[in-house]
Write a protein that binds this DNA or RNA. Structure first.
Lengths: 141, 141
DNA sequence: ACCCAGATGCGAGCAGCTCGCACGTAGCAG
DNA sequence: CTGCTACGTGCGAGCTGCTCGCATCTGGGT
């Protein structure tokens, strides 16, 4: 079993443990999100409908919301345009270049020092995640 | 003349210097943005239409775009919902609490150290601005 | 005072969701 | 294995926050 399949299993199992029903659509959506980080909802619809054309876009939106409330996935805004979905325990933070649009993945733990510093100085605990950080990558500077 | 009126004058003058036309609508929009940071486009429409009810919402959107291209204003996303507009030289960065929604203004220069650190480690120049930083304020933690 | 590129009012259109409703099915009780 | 029912779904309408095309108007140079 691939790591992504394993992740999807965990999502599905956790959903069931929380008293939620497991449907074909939910299972397919969990698999797609686990296997493909940073897809938009519309892209997820595309992947899901390859195998399950009957799954409606609104079901995808609602399922993503359910999974997010369950703390299993999260969405992040990389710029204008649709939100991007990923597993809640995705260990990377996104740096988006305003010049070329490139997305640089950086391990979250490498921001611990910055987080500590901001927390000490401003009493504010940054939750890197909901919005990407925008700026200029080394080649665009 | 209030500082905001002065700022508005600078905006208008710079527009004209860039070969753009100065209209009643543009003047009114510049004054509203200079006097009230972090308004949404729709709120700006409201303010402008008090004195100039003929100014159409689409004019406000287009003028904000023009002012942004001229480097005079910028928009920032504080969360879901409409963008918020401010003068490009607004010296504050926004920290938005995910718990209570409070917006904490922090002088940008106080992030210089963080910026330097991230640049040294990841080769990425963070442009605090287009997205606010989300997290938890001291009272919500 | 005249001219015309550029700005505006207006309304249609679009992206990205969100919601209400009727139907269908997961999952539990028996 | 069967039946029940509340939760999930397909479907389409609706909503927010812009964006655009077009005809008309006007700022500002001559």
């Amino acid at each position: 079993m691939s790591p992504a399949q394993h992740d999807a299993e965990v999502l599905i199992r956790t959903l069931r443990e929380q008293g939620q029903r497991v449907t074909t659509g939910r299972r397919a959506i969990a698999e797609v999100v686990a296997a493909n980080p940073d897809l938009s909802a519309e892209e997820i619809v595309g992947f899901v409908q390859r195998d399950h054309p009957e799954v409606h876009p609104s079901t995808v939106y609602r399922t993503l919301e359910t999974l997010e409330e369950a703390g299993l996935v999260r969405h992040v805004h990389l710029g204008h345009g649709p939100a991007r979905w990923q597993l809640a325990d995705d260990p990377a933070h996104r740096l988006v270049c305003e010049g070329c649009g490139a997305v640089q993945l950086v391990s979250r733990v490498r921001f611990d020092e910055v987080r500590r510093q901001v927390e000490a100085e401003f009493g504010f605990a940054i939750a890197f995640g909901h919005f990407a950080m925008t700026g200029r990558c080394s080649t665009c500077r």
